[in-house]
Computed example of a mutant assay.
Amino acid sequence: MFTRTESFKQYIKLYPVVSTLLALNIAIYILTSMPVIGNQLFNLGVHFNLLISEGEYWRLVTPIFLHASLSHLLFNMFSLFIFGPELEQIAGKARFLTIYLLAGLIGNVATYLIHDWNYTSVGASGAIYGMLGAFAALVYYTKNFLPQLKQIIIPIIVIGVIMTFIQPGINTTAHIAGLITGFVIGIIYFHPKRIAAWKKRRNKFKSV
């Protein structure tokens, strides 16, 4: 299910939203890595509770597309590359984008509400955990006829949550808030007809 066998051209054609998000995150990282202007762009978009409280509300959204290091970017984009396509297929383009962006946004809002005035953070992790939360909702609906999904997703979520609490420098609030947001939206979005259509598309693609 999460093994990517498409060619580059097929991947872009089949998963345009995921492909766009990947390209956007990579492009922004390259820009923020440039001398002088890179630091200015990064500082303009970073989540900083004090500046948000002073009216710079765009900082609740822009951190979703910023990353502190190459390893940070690669980890999040690898997760998006692997898990995003199936979710885009079943949810549809608009719903997938809604899950991704709302999970990231609510993760940042929760961070603003819970943490001190001097708290700063960046990263797409809240949005990534939102995808995992949506898959958890999918597990809820498909546990009787798609047990392999449960066997894959639940351990990943459990390990991810554990690592969130034990690894230093992690925005735990954004991760958990994103996970919950994705699950709630998934419960609303995923219904038997949409899941059946997704299974039909997957079987058709496999037979090609």
Score class of each variant (00 low, 15 high):
residue 164 T to C: 12
residue 155 P to I: 09
residue 138 L to M: 15
residue 166 I to E: 04
residue 7 S to M: 06
residue 79 S to R: 06
residue 57 Y to G: 02
residue 161 V to M: 05
residue 31 L to F: 12
residue 28 I to Q: 08
residue 155 P to V: 10
residue 136 A to F: 03
residue 128 I to Y: 03
residue 177 A to I: 06
residue 73 L to A: 07
residue 175 H to T: 05
residue 70 L to E: 07
residue 130 G to H: 00
residue 185 I to P: 01
residue 78 F to P: 00
residue 152 I to G: 01
residue 158 V to Y: 01
residue 85 P to Y: 05
residue 46 V to A: 12
residue 186 G to T: 08
residue 152 I to M: 11
residue 82 I to Q: 04
residue 37 I to T: 12
residue 2 F to W: 12
residue 33 S to F: 06
residue 50 L to G: 05
residue 164 T to V: 07
residue 82 I to N: 02
residue 106 I to H: 02
residue 128 I to C: 04
residue 167 Q to H: 11
residue 88 E to R: 08
residue 89 Q to G: 03
residue 206 K to D: 14
residue 74 L to C: 12
residue 10 Q to S: 13
residue 75 F to Q: 09
residue 83 F to N: 00
residue 129 Y to Q: 05
residue 130 G to S: 03
residue 78 F to C: 11
residue 188 I to Q: 07
residue 105 L to N: 00
residue 51 L to K: 13
residue 57 Y to S: 06
residue 145 F to G: 10
residue 187 I to A: 05
residue 172 T to Q: 15
residue 93 K to L: 09
residue 100 Y to W: 15
residue 16 P to T: 08
residue 147 P to T: 11
residue 134 A to L: 12
residue 77 M to P: 01
residue 203 N to M: 11
residue 171 N to S: 10
residue 160 G to S: 09
residue 126 G to P: 08
residue 195 I to Y: 02
residue 4 R to H: 04
residue 78 F to T: 15
residue 194 R to P: 01
residue 122 V to W: 06
residue 198 W to N: 08
residue 171 N to M: 06
residue 108 N to V: 07
residue 126 G to A: 10
residue 115 H to R: 13
residue 11 Y to T: 09
residue 161 V to Y: 04
residue 128 I to N: 01
residue 185 I to A: 01
residue 130 G to K: 00
residue 199 K to F: 13
residue 83 F to K: 00
residue 196 A to F: 07
residue 39 N to T: 13
residue 176 I to L: 14
residue 184 V to S: 03
residue 64 I to K: 06
residue 48 F to G: 00
residue 143 K to R: 15
residue 112 Y to H: 14
residue 110 A to M: 14
residue 109 V to G: 01
residue 141 Y to S: 03
residue 152 I to S: 08
residue 191 H to W: 07
residue 197 A to S: 13
residue 130 G to Y: 00
residue 151 Q to Y: 14
residue 151 Q to E: 13
residue 169 G to H: 10
residue 27 A to N: 10
residue 94 A to Y: 11
residue 57 Y to W: 15
residue 70 L to W: 13
residue 122 V to H: 01
residue 13 K to V: 09
residue 129 Y to R: 01
residue 120 T to N: 10
residue 106 I to G: 00
residue 166 I to M: 08
residue 15 Y to G: 00
residue 154 I to T: 09
residue 168 P to G: 12
residue 169 G to I: 09
residue 141 Y to N: 05
residue 12 I to Q: 07
residue 80 L to F: 05
residue 74 L to K: 05
residue 142 T to V: 12
residue 6 E to Y: 06
residue 72 H to D: 13
residue 175 H to G: 03
residue 207 S to H: 12
residue 92 G to T: 08
residue 161 V to F: 07
residue 193 K to D: 15
residue 183 F to E: 00
residue 124 A to P: 10
residue 84 G to C: 04
residue 141 Y to K: 15
residue 2 F to M: 11
residue 164 T to D: 05
residue 147 P to R: 08
residue 119 Y to F: 15
residue 40 Q to W: 14
residue 61 V to P: 03
residue 29 Y to L: 10
residue 89 Q to K: 13
residue 92 G to C: 07
residue 183 F to H: 00
residue 120 T to Y: 04
residue 113 L to A: 14
residue 195 I to G: 02
residue 24 L to R: 03
residue 84 G to V: 03
residue 87 L to Y: 03
residue 142 T to H: 05
residue 50 L to E: 14
residue 177 A to E: 02
residue 199 K to I: 15
residue 160 G to P: 03
residue 33 S to Y: 05
residue 8 F to H: 06
